[in-house]
């Protein structure tokens, strides 16, 4: 019972903070198209950066508390999808933080990098929305997203063999190491 309560608490925190991070990042990108929005962009960038950093450690706690709250986690497509979308959310949010960390607050001054940051934010926001919607489906039987005609059904999932999942995990780690170690060197971009 405690894990369920804890899960509700952590999920609320994670969803709220991550949504704030994503919305601020998207707004910071949009502010590029408004003259005189530099001050606002600075604030949005800071809020987005801090919120994303705060959301990252909360995500695994939310997953763990959710796993503890379920009697048989990942035994059905809906809960399996939660794991997959939690992974995607983590990936997008972490990429957002890494991009901001590598290029500094000036990341929004470069149109291509700003767009990439915004895409990361949109990806994270979409994944969080799907996560929340699956949670609502599991607990309430319905979700506000049901009104959308194109909303996917969550009673189906992409399940691969357990060993293949481990191979994919290994491949992901290798790909990440290669991207960091062998990728082009980056420099901070001037915020002026």
């Amino acid at each position: 019972m405690f894990s369920q309560t804890l899960h509700h608490l952590v999920v609320g925190l994670t969803t709220g903070i991550a949504t704030l991070a994503c919305l601020c990042a998207i707004a910071a990108w949009v502010s590029n198209y408004f003259v005189g929005a530099k001050n606002a962009r600075t604030h949005l960038d800071t809020a987005s950066y801090i919120a994303a950093i705060a959301a990252l450690p909360l995500l695994p706690i939310a997953v763990l508390s959710g796993t503890m709250a379920m009697s048989d986690p990942a035994s059905d497509a809906m809960s399996y999808n939660k794991f997959l979308f939690a992974g995607l959310t983590t990936g997008f949010l972490a990429s957002m933080v890494i991009g901001r960390w590598r290029f500094g607050p000036g990341v929004w001054n470069d149109s291509r990098l700003a767009l990439l940051q915004a895409i990361s934010a949109i990806g994270a926001l979409a994944s969080i929305t799907v996560l929340g919607s699956i949670g609502a489906k599991m607990t309430l039987g319905e979700s506000t997203m049901d009104v959308l005609p194109f909303w996917p059904k969550f009673d189906d999932s992409v399940v691969v063999n357990e060993w293949l999942s481990l191979v994919l995990l290994l491949l992901g780690i290798v790909a990440m190491v290669v991207a960091f170690r062998l990728g082009p060197k980056t420099e901070r971009i001037s915020a002026d």
Binding site: G87, L116, S165, A175, A179, K185
Partner: peptide, 29 residues
């Protein structure tokens, strides 16, 4: 599906997204 498979698949997705976006960051700088 199994719990270990779900976890591995979730982490694999996260790492691949990070690898992709970090590479793009280097290329688009």
């Amino acid at each position: 599906g199994s719990l270990m498979g779900a976890r591995a698949q979730g982490f694999a997705g996260a790492f691949m997204i990070i690898a992709l976006l970090v590479s793009l960051q280097g290329l688009l700088q």
